[in-house]
């Protein structure tokens, strides 16, 4: 599967990146390709382009705060979970995508 994801937490210095790492690691082990955009204290990094999004089979939001530029994802089915779910049990999120 071709997946895009966004992670964002309140302080934006730790959990955002821990969640991104977990999603990338798990996707790889499951044989998916994934691109994770982080919205943290440094702003948006690894930004998802329009073509990234339109080419995606699935979208994951692992967020505790509002996603910036959410309108980019209009028309997509989004699986949205709290950040800590992505850290604790990322595999369960991928199960929901199926």
């Amino acid at each position: 599967m071709n997946i895009v994801a966004v992670t964002a937490c309140p302080t934006g210095i730790a959990h955002t990146y821990m969640a991104a790492e977990q999603l990338e690691k798990t996707a790889k082990s499951l044989g998916h390709s994934i691109k994770v955009e982080t919205q943290g204290a440094m702003g948006i990094e690894n930004e998802l382009s329009e073509s990234d999004i339109s080419a995606a089979d699935a979208v994951i939001f692992a967020v505790d705060i509002d996603v910036e530029q959410r309108d980019r994802f209009e028309g997509k089915t989004i699986v949205e979970v709290p950040v800590k779910e992505a850290i604790r049990n990322p595999a369960a999120i991928f199960e929901k995508l199926a």
Partner: peptide, 25 residues
């Protein structure tokens, strides 16, 4: 414990982001 100053250069925050990712290993 991680404590960073409020007015921060991105380079320092990037170090923390890296550390956070490492913690998942």
């Amino acid at each position: 414990m991680m404590a960073v100053r409020d007015s921060q250069k991105d380079a320092h925050l990037r170090s923390l982001a890296k550390l956070s990712r490492l913690l998942m290993r």
